[in-house]
């Protein structure tokens, strides 16, 4: 008897997924919505949202690659759009369903990776630079190779970022596919590897705050979160130039709720919704109207929204041709195994 009760309880737990309300499945980077963003959408539209998160573009790619994942709306970085399209995973965005499309900042209405905004709607953006303890006065990538930092610096655990920083130090493009330039960048990375403490992504934030790490190659968003906790940390957009990234809302072709998916993206484009997200998460929005609603110190935060003369030195990541991808993968494995 007891056993039967137990088993039926188990079946109940396992079966509780099925429900009658219309449901939208959204997968986004973590820390990319405010606490009330999703509940408010559910209330307003009388639907249910299953909101999941991922931590790297590779993870997202692995999730949706099958074309049978169950997700409706996901947020890949710009350089992945081409690959997702080539695998026939994306549904075209229907602009007539997005009343708030004109809220986008002008710079994101015709982005180089998708000039017609046919496949994705820019959501958040940012740059990669150096977060450091203020007294160090770091300005350039080359500063990371300085001796006093021995053993007290970290790099991102991401091949395009590490090779990108080394390429920039040497004066090349972050998107270089030239084997000679890539080899030279690898030599720089190997030299730098002897000096680093670890390859860390967002985990470095706590260690910057605690003072364990003196300088870190970091995303502006991570740096901003550390700066919000302690005024000892600062962020530099390196003078040699730096990478820019932009994450986009896309609708998967497999989605059976295309209309609701559009409504969700349109909801995220509302200035008040987007502004609330930015205030809660300390991210940089691609929504110009929302930026206008922000308090001045957030709106003009130079870490998240660098002034034009700095921003000009930024460079977008682009998709790599297969031969270059293979070489970069090899170089990265050699760096890691050294």
């Amino acid at each position: 008897m007891k056993r039967r009760v137990f088993l039926s309880g188990l079946a109940g737990v396992a079966g509780c997924g099925g429900s009658r309300t219309l449901r939208l499945n959204v997968c986004n980077w973590s820390d990319y919505v405010a606490e009330e963003t999703i509940p408010n959408f559910e209330k307003e539209f009388g639907v249910e949202v299953r909101y999941g998160t991922f931590e790297s573009s590779a993870e997202l790619f692995a999730k949706v690659m099958s074309g049978n994942s169950g997700w409706d709306v996901v947020f890949p970085p710009a350089e992945d759009l081409q690959g997702l399209r080539a695998l026939n995973l994306l549904a075209p965005v229907r602009h007539e369903l997005l009343r708030n499309l004109d809220r986008l900042e002008p710079g994101f209405r015709r982005p180089p990776w998708d000039p017609e905004l046919r496949w994705g709607i820019p959501y958040m953006h940012g740059s990669t630079g150096i977060a450091f303890q203020k007294h160090l006065a770091i300005r350039r990538w080359a500063d990371l190779w300085r001796d006093p930092l021995q053993g007290r610096i970290t790099l991102l655990d991401d091949p395009v970022e590490v090779l990108g920083a080394c390429l920039k130090k040497l004066g090349f493009s972050i998107n270089s596919a030239d084997p000679v330039e890539l080899r030279a960048a690898q030599a720089e990375a190997l030299e730098l590897k002897k000096r680093i403490r670890a390859f860390l992504n967002a985990e470095v934030r706590d260690q910057l705050v605690a003072g364990d790490v003196q300088a870190a190659q970091a995303w502006a968003i991570t740096a901003q979160q550390a700066i919000a906790e302690t005024d000892r940390v600062a962020f530099a957009h390196p003078e040699e130039g730096f990478p820019l990234f932009c994450d986009n809302a896309v609708i998967l072709r497999e989605s059976r709720r295309q209309a609701l998916a559009h409504r969700f993206i349109d909801y995220l484009l509302r200035p008040d919704v987007a502004a609330a997200i930015v205030v809660a998460t300390g991210t940089a929005t691609a929504n110009g109207a929302a930026r206008g609603l922000l308090p001045a110190e957030v709106r003009d935060n130079p870490v998240l929204y660098p002034p034009e003369e700095i921003r000009r030195k930024g460079e977008w990541f682009e998709p790599q041709p297969p031969a270059s991808r293979k070489l970069r993968d090899r170089l990265w494995t050699e760096i890691k195994a050294a």
């Binding site: 970290t154 091949p159 680093i196 991808r325 494995t333």
Partner: peptide, 25 residues
């Protein structure tokens, strides 16, 4: 090895994982 080794070493597990995700090979 990622979390405690700071991703500074590649073990065979890292290699496989990397090829199936980031390397896409």
């Amino acid at each position: 090895s990622d979390l405690l080794g700071g991703s500074k070493t590649v073990l065979i597990g890292n290699l496989v994982q990397n090829q199936f995700t980031a390397g896409r090979d």
